[in-house]
Write a protein that binds this DNA or RNA. Structure first.
Lengths: 210, 210
DNA sequence: CCCGATCAGTCTACGGTGTAGACCATCAGT
DNA sequence: ACTGATGGTCTACACCGTAGACTGATCGGG
C-alpha cells in the first residue's frame, strides 16, 4: 500500500489528543487509539505509516491551532501574538508539549508559523543573514519557557525547591544560598513570560542596530 | 529492598551510554543494558528503581561531564565556559540530547551548573529577583541551540531545506521565499553559537542597566 | 564454628508494545 | 460480470518493563 488515506485522519488525531489529555503521552499506543475509535490497531496503518508518523501528525495539528497574527501587523505585535498563541496551545494540551521539542518541526503548520516570524524579523530590519538564526533562538525561547511552565524541565519535579537544594551542602551552592528567598517564593509565570518576551525584543533590536 | 547499591552504577551508566551512542536512544532497554554487562535485566533493579531512574542517572552523569569554570572568573567568561562545555558534551553524546529537554534537571550535577550561573548573574549585577528567570532563559537558549545543531545535522539527510519549503506553495511562505538564498546556504554553526552567546550577553546587560 | 543477615544476581511470568503479512468484504467503473 | 481499489480484520512475532520469588555467596558477631 503506497498511498495513505486521509479521510479519517483528523478523527484519529482527535482521539489521540483525547487519550494524551486523559492519560498522558505514554498512554498513546496504536492499540489505545484504535480502541477509542472502535477499530483494530492495524486499521491505523492505512492512515499513518507508523506510530512515529502519527505523533508527528499530532504535533502538526497542534501547531495549526496557533492562530496566525493579522497580516501586516507591526513586528512586535506579530511576535507577541505568536508567542501567546503558542502558550495558549501549550496550556490547552500540556502533556503533548515534549513532542514539540523532541520531534523536528517540519509540518506545513510549523512552516507557516516560522514564515511569519521570518517576515516579522525582516520588517523589523534584521539583516537577512541573521534571520534564520534569530528565529531558531526565538522559538526555542518561547517553547522552552512554555515547557518549563507547563511540564517542568526546571521547576516542576517531585522535589520542591528547598528539598532540591538540600541535595548538596550549602557551601557548594553559594548562588542558591544567596537567592534562597527568591527561589522559595512563588513564580509569577505570566510576568515571567512577559519579561522573556521583552528580552526577545531587546535581542532583536540589538541585531537591528548594526 | 529499600536501599540501592551503587558500586557498579558508573559501569552501568557507561554501558548505557555506549548503547545509545551505537544504536540510539530507543535501543536502551533494561535487557540491552544488562546484556552488555553480562547480567540479567533484573540485576539492574538493584541499582536503579526503574528504567526512568536509570535514564535520569544517565542525564545526571552527562551534566557532571560539563567542566566547571574557574572560581571567581568574570561573569562573561563563566557563561561562555559553561555554554561551550555544554555544547562539547552534547557533541560527544549527540543522541542523548533529547533527554536533557525531556527530563527535569534535578541531579546534583545540574544543580552545580545552575549555581554557577546564578553566581555569574549576581556578580554581573542582575537584580536577584530576575536571576532565576534569566538562568532559565539562558539554559534553554544554549540547550535549544545545541539541540537544533545536533538534530539539524541529523535531519539534513532526510529532508533538505528546499524540499521542506516545497510542502507549501511559495505564495504562502513569502518569508522563506525572501530568504531562499540564505536558507539554502550552509550553516556555520560555530558562528551561530557565538552569535547566540552574544545575544545572551545583551540580554543580561539589558537587565543590569534596568 | 555456626547463625543470621545482607548482598548480588537469577528465573519465571504477566501484560503490555509496534508492526509485518495474509486476508476479506464492500463497492464503483468498465 | 469482472476488476481493482478501499477500509478494515486477524494472527503472529519479537520485544518491552518489571513484580515476585528465589539462590548462592559473603561476612560480622555470638
Amino acid at each position: 500500500m503506497r498511498k495513505l488515506k486521509d479521510a479519517r485522519r483528523p478523527e484519529i488525531l482527535d482521539a489521540t489528543l483525547e487519550i494524551v489529555a486523559e492519560r498522558g503521552l505514554d498512554a498513546i499506543s496504536m492499540r489505545s487509539v484504535a480502541q477509542r475509535l472502535g477499530l483494530t490497531p492495524m486499521a491505523l496503518y492505512g492512515y499513518f505509516r507508523s506510530k512515529e508518523e502519527l505523533l508527528d501528525a499530532v504535533l502538526g495539528r497542534l501547531l495549526t491551532e496557533v492562530p496566525l497574527p493579522p497580516e501586516g501587523a507591526p513586528w512586535r505585535e506579530v511576535l507577541t501574538h505568536l508567542a501567546y498563541g503558542m502558550r495558549a496551545v501549550a496550556q490547552r494540551h500540556p502533556t503533548v508539549l515534549p513532542l514539540v521539542l523532541t520531534r523536528p518541526g517540519i509540518s506545513p503548520g510549523a512552516l507557516r508559523l516560522i514564515d511569519r516570524i521570518y517576515q516579522a524579523l525582516l520588517t523589523a530590519g534584521v539583516p537577512p543573514g541573521e534571520v534564520p538564526r534569530l528565529e531558531r533562538s526565538l522559538s526555542t525561547f518561547v517553547i522552552g519557557h512554555v515547557l518549563s511552565e507547563v511540564s517542568g524541565r526546571f521547576s516542576l519535579g517531585t522535589l520542591d525547591p528547598s528539598a532540591r537544594r538540600a541535595q548538596l551542602p550549602p557551601e557548594e551552592l553559594p548562588g542558591h544560598d544567596a537567592l534562597a528567598a527568591v527561589l522559595d517564593g512563588p513564580v509569577d509565570s505570566e510576568a515571567e513570560f512577559r519579561a522573556n518576551l521583552d528580552d526577545v525584543f531587546v535581542m532583536v533590536e540589538s541585531r537591528v542596530a548594526r
